[in-house]
């Protein structure tokens, strides 16, 4: 693990040298944040394209809300397990957040598949229930003195990429590799399903399998991103680069690369700007993304169609 952490720190350092902004080479936390953004932002763009295609913006919002219950569950688990060290607590928390998000995402997908209730109704019900459950459990734990009343929700609401630890970066890189492999093999099929699920089914594509796989992938990306931009902004991170790329691109291949580039540039740019102006990194990144989106809309209008 220690050598992995060392490698991660070297990666952060070399990345920092590529960007002409002095403080990056001085502060280790900025290098960690930079590396985190450089991994997370293309991931968000890639998943975001399909979120837009499948119209899953509201779905990702609901998966994001599951973080409250994930945290509550993690706290309960920590109490039950009697975790003593901070790193164990942190690990239990991460696993519980990600695990619960996957459960919620695949659960909503399953429910959507078996009922003919409109999907925004289903998501609305799931989303509210999950938040309520999380809030109730957390309040119980705090009021009975089982967990300290720390400002955990503040971090959840706004997120903070600057506190990302080398261990978290190792986890993020491992997931990035998995996600890339999945997307490499599943991308065309997911696009086909997005176009028409029944047509995809007749061509031998296992639509259910891919829908579950994608919802699980989305859940993990959302959980990683929440720690960066918070629950309130996580959907924007997925949707805006993809939406902007749609306005610029004409082909399916171009959408992908344009979304990735927009996401990368605005994220790194947002990090630098937030350090310059002492603003929140997540919020600054989203504002940069929105600016690009507005430009793309103008471009589309001028180009016509």
């Amino acid at each position: 693990m220690e050598s992995l952490v060392h490698i991660v720190e070297m990666m952060g350092g070399s990345l920092a040298r590529l960007i002409p902004y002095g403080p990056l080479s001085e502060h280790l936390f900025l290098q960690h944040a930079l590396l985190g953004l450089v991994i997370l932002s293309p991931l968000c763009a890639m998943i975001g394209i399909q979120v837009v295609n499948f119209r899953l913006a509201f779905f990702s919002e609901a998966v994001g809300h599951s973080v409250f219950t994930g945290i509550a569950l993690g706290s309960v688990l920590n109490v039950l397990l009697g975790a003593t060290t901070d790193s164990t607590r942190e690990l239990v928390m991460q696993i519980s957040m990600i695990g619960f998000a996957i459960l919620v995402a695949t659960g909503i997908t399953a429910y959507r598949r078996v009922t003919n209730l409109s999907s925004d109704t289903i998501i609305g019900i799931f989303s509210a229930t999950i938040v309520a459950l999380g809030l109730a459990v957390i309040a119980f734990l705090i009021n009975t003195g089982r967990v300290p009343p720390q400002g955990i929700y503040q971090t959840l609401l706004a997120g903070n990429i600057l506190t990302i630890s080398p261990a978290e970066l190792v986890g993020l890189i491992a997931f990035f590799v998995v996600a890339l492999v999945v997307e490499f093999f599943a991308y065309n099929r997911l696009m086909f399903i997005g176009l028409n699920p029944e047509l995809a089914e007749t061509r031998g594509i296992n639509v259910a399998l891919y829908e579950y796989l994608f919802s699980a992938l989305l859940a993990v990306v959302v959980m990683f991103s929440i720690q960066w931009v918070g629950v309130l902004l996580v959907t924007a991170l997925l949707v805006i680069p993809a939406a902007a790329a749609r306005n610029f691109a004409r082909t399916a291949g171009a959408v992908f690369w344009i979304a990735v580039v927009i996401s990368l540039v605005t994220s790194v740019g947002g990090l630098v700007l937030s350090d310059l102006f002492s603003t929140t990194t997540g919020a600054t990144v989203i504002i940069s993304m929105t600016t690009v989106f507005l430009l793309s809309t103008v471009y589309r209008q001028v180009r016509g169609g």
Partner: peptide, 12 residues
């Protein structure tokens, strides 16, 4: 092409 190739369209 999506219906014919496994290679993701973003790889060409």
């Amino acid at each position: 092409s999506m219906g014919m190739q496994r290679l993701p369209v973003w790889c060409g």
